[in-house]
Design a protein around this nucleic acid. Structure first.
Lengths: 251, 251
DNA sequence: TATAAACTATGACGCAGCGTCAATGTCAAG
DNA sequence: CTTGACATTGACGCTGCGTCATAGTTTATA
């Protein structure tokens, strides 16, 4: 059998352009060129194209495919095994992304319910509280409920006060920056911060550090801190490290 | 705070080129341009960049990101939900690919063991038998073992005979093509084919049709059939359909 | 202060795998 | 002989930058 471009294209379910391209890069050459310049494919080309499409389905690149079916004695098995590993890594990555999307969605919904349920506008501090609850989720979902209850039980005025308190604390810590992370000013700030956090949640030392790390690593936390000062998050992390060390020493 | 290109780039962990590009497509514009043409970014730009990178991590396209953070009141929640679905689809697809790779690897390894263990060279018919075992795997792995045992128990001469028998059957069916899929010649061929298959495995009618489908849809099956005739696989599918219908009618 | 090192700018090509015109030639049917 | 369906090559476009190339600017050092 002999096939023109369109015939082979329809047969294999690809476009004519694709066959042109495969010819261009030397992946699938027609059996013969007519004097009119037309491409004519034979049955061997059909088989080759089927192999190509098989590997293409598996997300091999056209170059890899060329190696796989051209090089005689090319190690197809280990190529497939390597490819499998690559595919698995992609799956893992995608799963992490989905998880992050889920978290973000949870956060957004929480925020919405809040702002709908009360007159209280979504202050950035309230957002911050949301974030903190989320971070906390990584430890114990049971605690989240308690935290949520506490927050809901607050009046708008109380919330306002809590938000202001948070702001004040961060400003205090900011002012302690020139004195260094181990200065008594900074450490006092961390102490106040801890008690502020404890309004929602009572973390142990490790969790406290985890939260400070989150302030640096989670872009949403980070963004809020950067609004105050671009080095605040990092400074807090250092200060918290010092804080914990001294706590553990005297424990 | 004000940042030059490199400062912001280092801060955010991206390249200067990336910032140039984001400026070019209007995704992140510097706060000011110096008289020397230099770009100068401010803290707002830092925050915006952080948001951009957050969504970029989630595999949003730069265009989508622009919409997400520029359009006021753009529905971020449903965008995220749609994105999640897209991610999930990608995961499903990758899992299928991995499964296919696994099957192919199994097949390749089986082939290798075969050719190593015996003097018997890897005839294309033996390959075909491998494929058939693989197709069968989709139904019941327990049956595979039986099939394998049977095959291994064969002498080389027996294998040769079986392979030849397969070839003869396919040739017979090929010769029946002009008479049509429902012709008695074709149906007799299917009957012989069935008994031939049953040497390895006893399929029910549905499984028989599944196998005939595999001859068309699996490129490796297809390739072998196309060597005989490009329309044989399709013809067999039709013939098997007819065969099954008549079987069920009289059942 | 002269010069070198480090930074800045714009412009352009390259990558993968084709889709999509565009301009032009060829073949089969009515 | 026309029409329409096919064929050809050539070229740009898409995504998200990496990577020169060329040229001007700022900063550090001798």
């Amino acid at each position: 059998m002999v096939y023109t471009v369109k015939q082979l294209a329809d047969l294999a379910g690809v476009s004519a352009r694709t066959l042109h391209y495969y010819d261009e890069i030397g992946l699938l050459k027609p059996a013969a060129h007519g004097e009119n310049g037309y491409r004519y494919y034979d049955d061997a080309a059909v088989l080759r194209l089927q192999q190509i499409l098989f590997f293409r389905e598996l997300d091999f690149s056209l170059n890899e495919i060329k190696d796989l079916i051209d090089r005689p004695g090319f190690d197809v098995t280990s190529a497939l095994e390597a490819h499998k590993v690559a595919l698995q890594r992609r799956v893992e990555r995608l799963k992490r992304l989905i998880h992050t999307v889920d978290n973000t969605l949870l956060h957004l919904k929480g925020e919405k319910e809040m702002s709908k349920r009360q007159l209280f506008e979504a202050f950035s501090e309230e957002q911050q509280a949301e974030y903190e609850k989320e971070a906390l989720q990584m430890y114990d979902p049971a605690v989240v409920k308690t935290s949520n209850k506490k927050w809901k039980a607050c009046t708008a005025a109380e919330k306002q006060r809590i938000g202001d308190e948070g702001n004040a604390i961060y400003t205090d810590i900011l002012l302690a920056m020139p004195q260094g992370a181990s200065s008594s000013e900074a450490q006092a700030g961390v102490e106040r911060w801890r008690r502020h956090i404890e309004y929602f949640w009572v973390p142990n030392e490790d969790q406290l550090l985890g939260l400070a790390n989150g302030y640096n690593d989670d872009p949403r936390f980070k963004a809020n801190f950067d609004k105050i000062d671009p080095h605040l998050a990092e400074f807090m992390r250092e200060a918290v490290k010092v804080y914990i060390k001294s706590k553990k020493k005297y424990a």
